[in-house]
Amino acid sequence: MDGHLRDRFEQATAGDPGAPPGELALAAITEGGRIRRRRHRLVAAGVAAGLVLAAGGLTAANLPWGAADRTATPPVTIAAAMVPVSAPSCSQSPVEDHATDLAVFLATEATDRQRDAVAAAVRDDARVDAVVFESRAEAYQRFATLWADSPDFVAAINADDLPESFRLRLTDPEHDAALRARFAAMPGVAQILGHRCPTDAPVGGLR
């Protein structure tokens, strides 16, 4: 079935008018060169290079691709620095199933109404034992504390760059899959991370 599906996608692009790759490269070099020069000027003006990175919508080039690679110390980049950090007593990498705690991150562009809908859903769900909401300001506080020794990073990020999140403790890890499916389907939810934690860990399993 997969091969068949691939053929269908292949056929769908059969109308490709084509474009000489050399020209494409040249155009990208011209436009990319402008971005480079603008960035150099910004850096010269004392703005942290990381800001340009974050503003450009580029995420870290050196960010490990698979979760498996995360054991190696990643080179510190803005994107890596913004990755939520597991609480010390919880599983250090996010787990895919049977999590005791979930962190539900909202998209940075989520609307107030979407947030309120998610808030109501998590608060009214009997399978959720405890809920803590982390605002952008709180997320920023946490970020600033965590990266206190890299003032450039902290200066390059502002609260609006960080997502709001709901931190949940489940009544039973058996409910993990159903809850993830439920919340992931809600508009405004960007990502859900699960951790296995002892009962005395911070709700949500993140630092």
């Binding site: 494409l24 990319g32 402008r34 971005i35 919508g57 080039a61 691709w65």
Partner: peptide, 27 residues
Amino acid sequence: WHLAQDLTQHTLAKMYASWDRVRTSAS
């Protein structure tokens, strides 16, 4: 297709701007 061409060029421009970093990334 026209928009696709623009989006591709913009993508490549961003990559070129950071190429020294990008080229060393895992993939």
